[in-house]
Design a protein around this nucleic acid. Structure first.
Lengths: 342, 342
DNA sequence: ATGAAAAATGCAAGCGCTTACATTGCAAGA
DNA sequence: TCTTGCAATGTAAGCGCTTGCATTTTTCAT
């Protein structure tokens, strides 16, 4: 072990095995091009030396990295975890490696991460949501790196996407809330600036109100970051108004759980005094008490399909086809008819 | 836009600016070595051309990537999210980029990911827990890639670590459970094979029992994966025995939350009939109902310190110093005195 | 003005790998 | 036995960048 001072290179392997570097390279990349006897010998030397190919060199020479990059807004909660895990599994099965970084919902950081990943030779990129500077898309195009958008479905967008209609999903949920009897509806939304998913979710609620003859302009909407504390804070804010809303639709489960927590602290009963809904159906939604009525997003399916499509794009098999995933509403205890006389 | 068919290189910039590639390179890497007038001109050309340095090439030439890799067991729940976020922030502030991948708690995958990250030129690695094949450590040594272990503190281990004593933290919690009056204590642990954190947590409980004259061998321990459903399943199993335990200590919050969920389904009151405790103090712990008594791990602090130490190691400033982070117990509703007559 | 030291820039050798093309070896048909 | 043709291997030219060293330009004390 460790006869040499530093890591062995292709060259070392070649000379130890008495062949040329080309042959060693071929043993690794297209084994059937080299006759068995030499292949065995070479592989043995590789084993002995503990040789691992240098990726940077390989990428540079081959201009192909079998690496896919993904930039997600945050790792801080589970929103993207499940889908990403499925994405990674599918990639692995096809010989790709996933590199993840998070942008903390900041466009500049996202931009920087995109560049970092491209510069690192990512063959393709998974991006969350459509909205970002055109410059970025130009950059990607220039570098000929295909990008697929997930967590959103917009058939006419510049980039192909695999996701769901945030607007329609939220519309359906809001319709249900209305059907349950609610009229005074408020909303706790994620920050909409630079976040098309959040924007469309708000739009979905607005459209549903409108469609039911409720004036959407009156709806109180609080925008805040996707954190439990933020949701809690927004809830208190909303409930301090008179008249109180009878239902609060939250931009995602994290916000809803925050609202739930604050309700408990304020001793406001859910759903007796106020109904609360979420979005995503992450584990939290079922654990929360009362459990959350929410929009179920098939994250694993989305992750898997995104991987398949992106691989096809990287291979040149596909020019980028958008896919819409169906969501559905999960009914749990947090939604009920509004209190009497409300 | 897009005059050239493909991405511009250093060479393109150099010729457009009428300087040598060396000068362009220096503009980027050590700006003070080049006089302002040329620097401005070069930067302008870079801007015009939309040039981004090719990372693979840079890594290869400089043998330094300013990239740190981290392999975590899972992204599927929040256990590692917070600490990792802090880790990344600290890295960013020091000009490093973080690359993350997850091993799904599988040693072979972890090994593969380690190689992938090293081959990609990671300057340093963050690993979770100490236990892994020596071969991996040899490989890392050979490639001269410093590695720091987190989420565990073991001063005498081969690798330096920044973390906490899983054994001591769990010992303290178990002691509290005992002080609260419990004698029939059971445990739901994560899979201990290849997971030293899980092993030591079990050990902590055993030691506490022993220290209080309770026979540790009698303790029922169920090992299972760190998933909510697994925790639920284990809980049902444990509660089907006679006599039932009065307290169930869980290997982490995820398992505890699963137990809580199952308790609700089985209509077993927590903490009246049985107390449940967790470990980690992730958001889930506070949201759960009843809220979890658990061991609070200062994840952010750990992440930050790990980043600082790892950077120092990469710079050669430090040979690798281990740091122990203090944990403390957070008392919430899920722990109470055992039922009368128990 | 002048030479020496300092500052700015250029030259060119790699970094470790892939791959087009050239060469060699060998089986098999003539 | 001698081509012919293909399979196996070797040769060497990059891939885009950094950096030690050489060269040119500037600065400044004399």
């Amino acid at each position: 072990m460790g006869k040499t001072r530093s890591a062995p290179t292709l060259n070392d392997v070649a000379s130890h095995a008495g062949v040329s570097t080309a042959t060693v390279s071929r043993c690794l990349n297209s084994p059937n091009q080299v006759v068995e006897t030499t292949r065995v010998r070479v592989l043995q030397v590789i084993e002995e030396l503990g040789y691992t190919p240098n990726f940077a060199a390989r990428v540079m020479a081959a201009k192909r990295s079998f690496t896919i990059g993904a930039i997600i807004p945050t790792m801080d909660n589970a929103i993207f975890a499940r889908g990403l895990q499925a994405f990674q599994n599918e990639l692995r099965q096809n010989g790709y490696t996933l590199l993840v970084s998070s942008s903390d919902y900041k466009p500049e950081i996202e931009k920087e991460q995109i560049r970092a990943l491209v510069a690192r030779g990512a063959d393709g990129l998974l991006l969350i949501g459509h909205e970002r500077e055109n410059e970025i898309y130009d950059y990607l195009k220039r570098h000929q790196v295909p990008a697929l958008v997930a967590w959103s479905y917009l058939p006419d967008a510049r980039q192909p996407s695999v996701g769901f209609s945030n607007r329609d999903a939220m519309f359906a949920l809001a319709q249900d809330v209305i059907n349950t009897g609610h009229r005074r509806i408020a909303m706790i939304s994620g920050v909409t600036a630079g976040n098309d998913r959040a924007q469309r979710r708000v739009q979905g609620v607005r459209d549903a109100l409108q469609a039911n003859g409720i004036c959407a302009d009156d709806m109180r909407v609080i925008e805040t970051t996707y954190e439990i504390d933020s949701g809690a804070h927004a809830f208190r804010d909303l409930m301090s108004r008179t008249p109180r809303p009878t239902a609060i639709i939250c931009g995602n489960d994290v916000l809803a759980v925050g609202a739930l927590r604050e309700a408990r602290r304020m001793d406001v009963s859910v759903p007796d005094e106020v109904s609360i809904t979420g979005f995503d159906d992450i584990e939290l939604a079922e654990i929360a008490s009362p459990a959350l009525t929410t929009v179920h997003v098939p994250h694993r399916e989305m992750g898997r399909k995104a991987a398949q499509e992106l691989i096809a794009m990287v291979n040149g098999t596909s020019k980028g086809v958008s896919t819409c995933i169906d969501t559905h509403i999960v009914y749990r205890a947090s939604l009920a008819t509004p209190p009497n006389g409300a």
